[in-house]
């Protein structure tokens, strides 16, 4: 028996919007720790990892570990039927081949339930080791989204370089080149507007902008984004989900042979 009640139901809608461009089908894993997911895109160069901790739910019952295969577009179609202020409850019985999403309006005058068929999905679960990163950049998520969008109108790839001067995003295409430098800026009115660079040593890596633009679909989930870079390691782009957990994206760098 599984029953997860999320008062802030709109958060689940935002989580789906943050993943469905990258991944079509995925297994959602429920355990005592929380509601989680790990899935790769079809070319296996990008990965999304989600954790919504059990403590973040108003009610969390998960009698035994359960993995539920879902088509994210179908799940999104169902969640779009929930109002933004609705409370969402996810329910499933042991051994069943469906999941029920229950939507309650805030004053309890409307209750809806949508049952969705589950799928069998073969997915590879990667063991991602903890790593020390050469540079970690924290910046406003809206600024990162703007940079990725702007640069993708010029080129297909971005070089992200971190030095003590700041973080530089560079691209080149048929029509020309573009460089955007963000300097460390801790002296802002609101902490979420700061750009903070923790650098052990300079690092420069190249990534496909198409994937980074997909990652920025998570912007509504968090005011800030953390970008962790190391030579020869996938970049980690993390959006913290307040009081619940995180959505992390991993992307393999492009390598010049």
């Amino acid at each position: 028996m599984l029953e997860l009640r999320l008062v802030q139901g709109s958060l689940l809608k935002k989580v789906l919007d943050a993943m469905r461009e990258l991944v079509n089908d995925a297994n959602f894993d429920c355990s005592a720790t929380g509601f989680s997911l790990q899935a790769m895109d079809s070319s296996h160069v990008a990965l999304v990892a989600l954790l919504l901790r059990s403590e973040g739910f108003e009610h969390y019952r998960c009698d035994r570990n359960l993995s539920m295969g879902m088509n994210l577009n179908n799940m999104s179609k169902m969640l779009r039927c929930a109002g933004n202020d609705d409370i969402i409850t996810i329910k499933a019985d042991d051994g069943t081949d469906s999941v029920t999403f229950m939507f309650e309006s805030p004053n309890q005058d409307k209750i809806a339930d949508f049952e969705m068929k589950l799928m069998d999905i073969d997915s590879e679960h990667l063991g991602i080791p903890d790593a020390e990163y050469q540079a970690i950049v924290r910046m406003p998520s809206s600024e990162f989204a703007r940079i990725c969008k702007d640069l993708s109108s010029i080129g297909d790839t971005v070089v992200i370089s971190v030095t003590k001067e700041g973080v530089k995003f560079s691209t080149a295409g048929d029509i020309g080149t573009a460089n955007i430098v963000c300097r460390q800026n801790k002296t802002v009115d609101k902490p979420e507007e700061a750009t903070i660079i923790e650098m052990q040593e300079p690092v420069s890596l190249t990534f496909a902008l198409r994937y980074l633009n997909s990652f920025t679909k998570a912007t509504p989930l968090s005011d800030t984004v953390t970008i962790s870079l190391s030579s020869e390691l996938p970049v980690v782009v993390e959006y913290k989900i307040a009081e619940m957990g995180y959505i992390r994206y991993y992307l393999a760098p492009k390598i010049e042979e």
Binding site: E124, L126, L233, A252
Partner: peptide, 14 residues
């Protein structure tokens, strides 16, 4: 030529 390793190469084989 530019190419991309997969995440499986990074996390399961390295």
């Amino acid at each position: 030529e530019v190419f991309q390793n997969t995440l499986v190469d990074y996390f399961n084989n390295k």
